[in-house]
Design a protein around this nucleic acid. Structure first.
Lengths: 316, 316
DNA sequence: TAGAACTGTTGACACGTGATATCAAACACA
DNA sequence: TGTGTTTGATATCACGTGTCAACAGTTCTA
């Protein structure tokens, strides 16, 4: 308690929160005493009286935590520090209910969701006063979903050297798969719109034997193009194709997502899709700043463009 | 407030914390009312009166967050849920001071550190009443450090096919490198003990051009063995060697750490080191349970064995 | 000059919990 | 019956903060 600054408790609170009218002279005196005593307001006290903590929870899906997500988390952390929020990262567990409870436990002022929360979860959180980010926009339909677009783009790249049968290579491991379905939908949508047969879906484990078995079951002498969930799956498919003696991209063309360093370091170099985090961060940053003003107005509905870049390697 | 269970506020507290003597009948009545009203004690209230929150902070170094760390985090989260702790993951930022402040901000009951905290940070946290895990043991010397052992093991594997000049391949990216130095020390220690010249150190960026330049500067016709910081670096070195026309493992033998799926899916298959998380988790779990009893006694100083497995591929 | 308006500061309360001392009732014993 | 003991439940306080009404001092207005 820095009340020994020759001033009362309430005044300190006013200074630190900028509420009442305070002359510059006392303001400085309070700030000096505060920094001298290393005074920090107790989060517990604030949370108790305000009914809400100053915590921002980032909910990460129970999936592979790659470079992309990590960069996003770093950016959000830096951004949130600006707003005097303390960032908490929560990895979703296998039990969604428990995850929601863990998030609620913090009574957070905001929650950044990367695809964990269902509609009911969002409602529950917002009912308790938290802001769920990214905010839902009227045009957040499946067709506008970034992962849907990814599916469409991959198909086009795979068909670059002429028609071939398309397959989606899903990731098979113990974790969940929050993004795969939308990408597969994007593939199917594009194929259907262009009169192509609906692409099949195969599950690829991340080891040679399993991937080989999956690919062997799917391949039938005609060329196929495999759009993979990510670069790791693509590498597994390539390893399987190599083991089966298939030519790339003759019999087998493969494409990944993420543009990982590994994919660009192997031979043949992987064709992959690189997503620019810029727009996502811009949208989150906008929602974050609108948190201060407490204004519900959307800041001009920021750009909806999804700048994806095809990194063309030697596998398509 | 579930005080409308026909009973007073204090009684509820007694029931939920198991303090006073309470007859089974009222106990059940309170519990029934609590679950009916979905009553959950306010974390803020508890934290305020107890001076400490029920938070366990996991501090992750500002480095590549790979599969290993993710598994550990998942395990710790599950373990901590058992002890009624809420887990918070904090990614260390570029500024260590800010990271410490962010951790202190939670006034956590425990902190699990993966190599971020310095001695002063530990002291500061423990002074504020937090338990820092893993607890320091008397025999936690550099030579007993797991990363030190990794360095020693890699050297032995690289020399399997006869003597060659050794190099450490450090990771060069914008993040920090918490584990690399200890591994390099392990290498140097083993080499010195066996009368070999001190291994040099080169920094490898995760793209072909940079890796190629680094390797070209280091290679001088005699065979070399590169012990890499992790599998990604090893793949970069392999790509560089391929581009320079070096034979593997004739001119260039390479070894990684982590046993990532990617490393086992490429050709040539990577020789790498797989670390079993079991002992680390056992130690953390022991420290975690000793948290309940508040006993400072070490539970028998658990096994110090470091079960590392060499996954021998085609690069050594 | 009396009253009104404004400025700067403060006392008091509420938030929800854990701990402690207290209190009423029932019971044992002389 | 009177006294001490045990049992079960509660009133009260403290934790550290934000907010609000109130207050003393000063300046403005009629």
């Amino acid at each position: 308690m820095a009340r020994r600054a020759g001033v009362s408790r309430a005044t300190v609170s006013h200074v630190l929160n900028g509420r009442g009218r305070i002359p510059e002279e006392t303001r400085q005196r309070v700030l000096a005493a505060a920094s001298e005593l290393q005074y920090t307001p107790s989060p517990a006290g604030r949370a108790l009286v305000r009914g809400r903590s100053d915590v921002l929870v980032i909910v990460i899906p129970h999936t592979t935590f790659g470079r992309n997500l990590q960069d996003l988390v770093d950016d959000i952390t830096a951004q949130a520090d600006t707003h005097d929020l303390s960032v908490v990262v929560r990895f979703a567990g296998p039990d969604p209910e428990e995850t929601l409870a863990a998030v609620q436990h913090f009574r957070p002022v905001a929650v950044v969701d990367f695809g964990v929360l269902g509609a009911a979860d969002r409602d529950s959180l917002e009912a308790s006063g938290a802001v769920v980010i990214p905010k839902l926009r009227p045009d957040d339909t499946l067709e506008n979903n970034a992962n849907f677009t990814i599916g469409e783009l991959m198909v086009q790249e795979l068909l670059r050297k002429g028609p071939r049968r398309l397959v989606f290579g899903a990731l098979l491991d113990e974790r969940s798969d929050p993004f795969g379905p939308a990408r597969y939908e994007g593939m199917k949508h594009w194929a259907q719109a262009h009169g192509l047969p609906i692409p099949r879906r195969m599950e690829i484990p991340l080891h040679l034997a399993g991937a080989r078995a999956a690919l062997q079951a799917e391949f039938a002498d005609e060329p196929i193009g495999v759009a993979c969930y990510n670069d790791a799956v693509a590498l597994a498919v390539l390893a399987a194709g190599r083991d089966l003696g298939l030519s790339v991209p003759g019999h087998l063309s493969v494409m990944g997502v993420d543009a990982t360093a590994e994919g660009q370091l192997v031979s043949p170099r992987l064709t992959t899709l690189k997503a620019d985090n810029g727009p996502v961060m811009a949208r989150i940053a906008a929602d974050l700043t609108s948190l201060d003003g407490r204004t519900g107005a959307h800041p001009g509905t920021p750009e909806r463009t999804r700048p994806f870049t095809v990194i063309r390697g030697e596998t398509t």
